[in-house]
Design a protein around this nucleic acid. Structure first.
Lengths: 345, 345
DNA sequence: CTTAGCACTTGTGTTGTTTGAGTGCTAAAA
DNA sequence: TTTTAGCACTCAAACAACACAAGTGCTAAG
């Protein structure tokens, strides 16, 4: 249990350290704190905080920095999100103000805005209706030998891919295949489609095509892409700013992590209602040891909910960042509701 | 003019330095060279080479490293491409051996292979018929409010984009617009299409749509994407290995450069027949000061020609790299010819 | 419980020293 | 005329010695 004064000191340590990056000592605190006590008193309190594992020293006679547990306590009990700077609100309004023709444009643009505001790396995930279902499949012939496969889900996701076909395949055959897919698979959830695709569909297709494998590859490919959550990433390069002592290896694994949809989905976790903060090695992934992640959901009513997140150094100004993320989720939800209102009608 | 012996020394300096990264001194050379002379003689020759600006010292009593001019001389007169290691050839064969359904898959895969072989960053550009023309435009309705725009060129490039439309737009109207586009614009080169799109088309479209701007945006967008050369990049992260002293800023500008199609097109230059090497500040771009670029074209007969390139540190083993690039361009051309033969019938 | 005072620890920065690799130059040898 | 041995000189790198500043823990008095 912490005393009022200890909380005050812990808060000051975190704030100072996240601002300056320098371990903070007792004298500096004594000068800065609203209460009037000597540095020796602060030292005693700091020893108590260290006892509890909330702060630590970098070497035996250094000032203190917050431990992961210290950040955790700070985030859970002491921090208050900063109100947005007026300028930041302007940036959001104007960047989100334009005309968009796709949900994805708004979401991807959001990642950029968020990374600009924070100068960290940002992730956005579009609102998602759980268990989206296959609502249509097309094969559009484009020329003598090109065909585009298009897959649409009932949540409005579209995946497509062009591929080349041998001329021995006729338009009639393709049409039959499309009819087959639409008859048999439309209305199923994507995992169900995947299952059926491995089970009885290949045999049925074999009635129309001599070598169905090529087609199944394409369809399967488009399908898995559609089934996958798609994250947008903004400000990738900002990670370079925090690669202390230029540890190339950890940077590389960090970037590989970010570019693998599955991994990043894993790290971001399942959306729950609040804004949540993961600090340093609270995340199991080793590449993220010196980073913190702030995730938040946004809610667009019947259109589902999405996520936004920022990834920055553990030593980040949490109050400001929480303010930004909090405000942005609201603005994004508003914008999306506007968008749906316009196009749904 | 260089004597035989001076050439031998220059070659050895470049080879040694590209292998070890350490300035090479007279003693080491004396031991290593096939001819039998003392280190003092080497010193005299090196002084002559330095006089001509081909090698230089890092400080007044250091060994020598090649200057840009030295690399240039080496590349132009002294280097002989290494034959491919057997293992490397295996890698190429097996990575390129699979079944592909799109040209783009082969080209993009090639960038990955090339970066793996070299452990540098690789670029590939697909074979290009000059002045490709618009060969078709489609609008495919996908659901209640989604439409996909597809643009096809006669060189087989396909660009597409999904967008949302207000329900006030009817299918008939869309069809009329598509017919208009196809009547008026098919057969023109893409720059011509762009020009017409700014001139008389908007007025004509206004006959069918009340607010043509949204549509024009989409079409223009798809069009510029199609008109643009598209580079594939492999091994982006390898650039991190050569960012000496972790100069974050130059790294950032390097990565921004790589991700801008126009800029990288600019750097790679126009294809000509041979394999060409650009060294350090021979490239005007400042971010590339410590890099060298090897570019090569590959030729697939009537299907045009494309480019491959690798970007690595100025201090790269040129002979090996030239060997790899040379061999790979041939293998890629072969693979593409196979591909065309199969699908062209 | 608070504080002044003090001894102690440690990172940082400066300065000087040594070592080794390498150079240019000179004068003798080939 | 070219090559070579020898020598004085230069410089980066590694290391040691040192002072300094910032900070700590502890003790004893207020």
């Amino acid at each position: 249990m912490l005393s009022e004064r200890q909380m005050m000191i812990l808060r000051a340590v975190v704030r100072d350290f996240t601002n300056t990056g320098v371990p903070v000592g007792s004298k500096a605190l004594a000068k800065q704190l609203p209460i009037h006590v000597s540095s020796a008193t602060i030292r005693n309190e700091m020893a108590a905080l260290e006892e509890q594992g909330l702060i630590k020293k970098t070497h035996s006679s250094s000032g203190r920095i917050p431990s992961v547990e210290g950040y955790r306590y700070y985030v859970d009990h002491l921090v208050k999100p900063d109100p947005l700077r007026p300028n930041d609100m302007d940036v959001i309004q104007s960047s989100l103000g334009g005309d968009f023709h796709k949900i994805d444009e708004i979401i991807s643009q959001s990642a950029t805005i968020l990374s600009n505001l924070t100068s960290y790396t940002a992730f956005t995930l579009k609102p998602e209706l759980k268990d989206s279902r296959l609502s249509g499949f097309r094969l559009v012939p484009l020329g003598k030998r090109q065909v585009m496969a298009i897959l649409v889900t009932d949540s409005g996701d579209v995946e497509n891919q062009t591929f080349d076909v041998n001329e021995s395949v006729t338009g009639d055959q393709l049409e039959a295949v499309v009819r087959l897919i639409n008859d048999q698979l439309v209305g199923l959830t994507l995992p169900e489609v995947v299952k059926k695709l491995q089970a009885d569909i290949p045999m049925k297709i074999a009635n129309y095509l001599q070598s169905p494998q090529g087609f199944l590859d394409i369809f399967g490919d488009v399908l898995t892409r559609a089934a996958q959550e798609r994250f947008y990433v903004g400000g990738r390069l900002n990670l370079l700013n925090f690669s202390q002592d230029s540890d190339v290896d950890s940077l590389k694994s960090l970037y590989s992590l970010i570019d693998k949809t599955d991994d990043i989905a894993n790290v971001l976790g399942r959306p729950d209602d609040k804004i949540s903060v993961q600090i340093g090695n609270e995340m199991t992934n080793d590449a993220l040891r010196n980073f913190s992640l702030i995730t938040a959901t946004y809610d667009v009513n019947q259109h589902g909910r999405g996520m936004i997140a920022i990834l920055g150094p553990t030593r980040m100004p949490y109050s400001r960042m929480l303010g930004i993320v909090g405000a942005f989720r609201e603005e994004l939800a508003k914008k999306l509701l506007d968008y749906y209102r316009f196009y749904d009608e």
